[in-house]
Nucleic acid binder design. Structure first.
Lengths: 136, 136
DNA sequence: TCATTACCCTATAAAAATGATAGGGTAATT
DNA sequence: AATTACCCTATCATTTTTATAGGGTAATGA
């Protein structure tokens, strides 16, 4: 399941993309418009900033803007930052690999093969950029 | 993420499929061979029995057998029984639909569209039967 | 400068989900 | 009748999820 955090992150980035302007957008505005608990959102925004998805400007009239070309911000990227692996079992994750510690031979594990295939099918869908998402 | 319960269920069904015989297989045997905590397995087997995936025979020499044609037992089926929806957000689930209670219009929600598409891509992979899984 | 607005950071906590464990009851076979 | 195995309910420890609280820091505009 997609966590609420990740969903909020996607909504936030979508909001920033669709309200681009020279003036940054405040967390308060996003919180109200997207109905995301303010303090929770702050936390998500910090994580997005750490991963250089957004940029922040302090002070009155401060707020957030996208930190990179929206073509380069994908849903998969956001999910990985917030929730971790896309794959449904850790032993087929590229970036968050962990052994499941159960099967004797990972190379021949059939459950692993199935979920590797699943991941392969999932990725192209989730690698849509925020622009593509906005266009749906 | 796939729960351990669901993974155990898949392993159990795979084991039953690959050790088919007139004699049923005991929970104890499955527990030992697949290294699944016995009482946890009992619980999973009960759920599988309720959903008529396995059949049980009581008494000494009792145990479990598949309750239906292995062609008809799919991984998706097992996941739905044990974990619930395949979809990553409940509002695009066919069998476990729930409103997310957030978006104003489900028909136009773009996050929903994306995850509906994701589900569409995931299903064919997960609808492989236990026979196909065994053949991987 | 000072009040305001907004970002930054740490800690805490309620609620739900996950992964079991315990203990005894019931049924069927040898 | 003893054994073996399935059936059922309750409990529980851990982790994850979803926040909330409270205060600190920085920058803008009047």
């Amino acid at each position: 399941m997609l966590s609420k955090r990740a969903k909020y992150a996607i909504k936030t980035i979508l909001y920033l993309y669709e309200h681009q302007s020279p003036v940054p957008i405040s967390a308060k505005t996003i919180s109200e418009k997207e109905r995301i608990p303010y303090k929770f959102l702050e936390n998500i925004l910090r994580e997005l900033k750490t991963h250089q998805v957004v940029r922040s400007v302090r002070g009155a009239e401060g707020g957030y803007t996208l930190a990179k070309d929206p073509n380069e911000i994908t849903v998969a990227h956001l999910m990985r930052i917030i929730d971790g692996p896309i794959a449904l079992i850790p032993c087929v994750s590229e970036r968050y690999y962990e052994s499941c510690g159960e099967c004797e031979n990972e190379e021949t594990c059939r459950i692993r093969k199935l979920f590797a295939e699943l991941r392969t099918e999932m990725l192209p869908v989730l690698e849509k950029s925020i622009i593509q998402l906005a266009g749906l």
